[in-house]
Amino acid sequence: MDPYVLIVEDDDNISEMMTFYLSEEGYIIERAGTGPEGLEMFEARKPHAIVLDIMLPGLDGISLCQQIRRKSSVPILMVSAKHEVSERVNALLVGADDYLCKPFSMREFAARIKALLRRSQLNGGAEQPGEREDISPIAIDVERRTLFVRGAAVETTFSEFEIIKLFYQNPGKVYSRDELLNRIRGFDSFVTERAIDVHIANLRKKVEADPKEPKYIKTVWGVGYKFILE
Rank of each mutant, 00 (worst) to 15 (best):
D2Y: 07
D2R: 13
P3Y: 14
L6S: 12
I7V: 14
V8W: 00
E9W: 06
E9P: 00
E9N: 01
D10Y: 05
D10L: 00
N13Y: 08
N13Q: 11
E24W: 00
E24T: 06
E25H: 07
E25C: 03
G26M: 04
Y27E: 06
I29N: 09
I29K: 08
A32Y: 09
A32P: 00
T34V: 03
G38N: 07
L39C: 08
E43I: 03
R45M: 05
K46E: 15
K46R: 15
K46V: 03
P47V: 10
H48T: 04
I50C: 06
I50D: 08
I50A: 07
L52E: 10
I54H: 10
L56G: 07
L59K: 15
L59R: 11
S63W: 04
Q66G: 04
I68G: 07
K71E: 13
K71L: 06
K71A: 09
S72F: 03
I76N: 10
L77Y: 11
M78Q: 09
M78P: 06
V79R: 04
S80G: 08
S80C: 05
S80F: 06
K82L: 11
V85E: 15
S86V: 03
E87M: 07
V89C: 02
A91T: 03
V94Y: 10
D97E: 13
D97C: 09
D98I: 06
D98Q: 14
Y99V: 04
L100V: 06
K102P: 05
P103N: 10
P103M: 08
S105V: 03
M106S: 11
R107Q: 12
E108I: 05
F109L: 05
K114F: 02
A115S: 15
A115Q: 15
A115R: 14
A115P: 03
S120L: 05
S120H: 14
S120W: 13
L122M: 14
G124A: 13
G124Y: 15
A126R: 14
A126P: 05
E127W: 14
E127L: 10
E127D: 12
I135A: 14
I135S: 13
S136Q: 15
A139I: 01
A139K: 05
A139L: 08
V142M: 06
V142T: 06
V142F: 07
T146R: 15
L147I: 02
L147Q: 03
L147E: 03
A153R: 15
V154W: 07
V154P: 00
V154S: 07
T156K: 12
T157D: 13
S159C: 08
F161L: 10
I163Y: 15
Y168L: 00
Q169I: 02
N170P: 02
N170H: 15
Y175N: 05
Y175T: 02
R177I: 11
R177H: 09
R177V: 10
R177D: 08
L180P: 01
R185S: 14
R185D: 13
F187D: 02
F187M: 06
F187I: 02
F190C: 00
E193M: 00
R194A: 02
D197M: 02
V198E: 08
H199S: 05
A201D: 11
L203H: 13
K206H: 09
D210A: 11
P211K: 14
E213G: 04
K215W: 03
I217L: 12
K218E: 15
T219S: 14
V220P: 01
V220C: 12
W221V: 09
W221N: 12
G222R: 10
V223H: 13
V223W: 10
K226V: 01
F227C: 04
I228L: 09
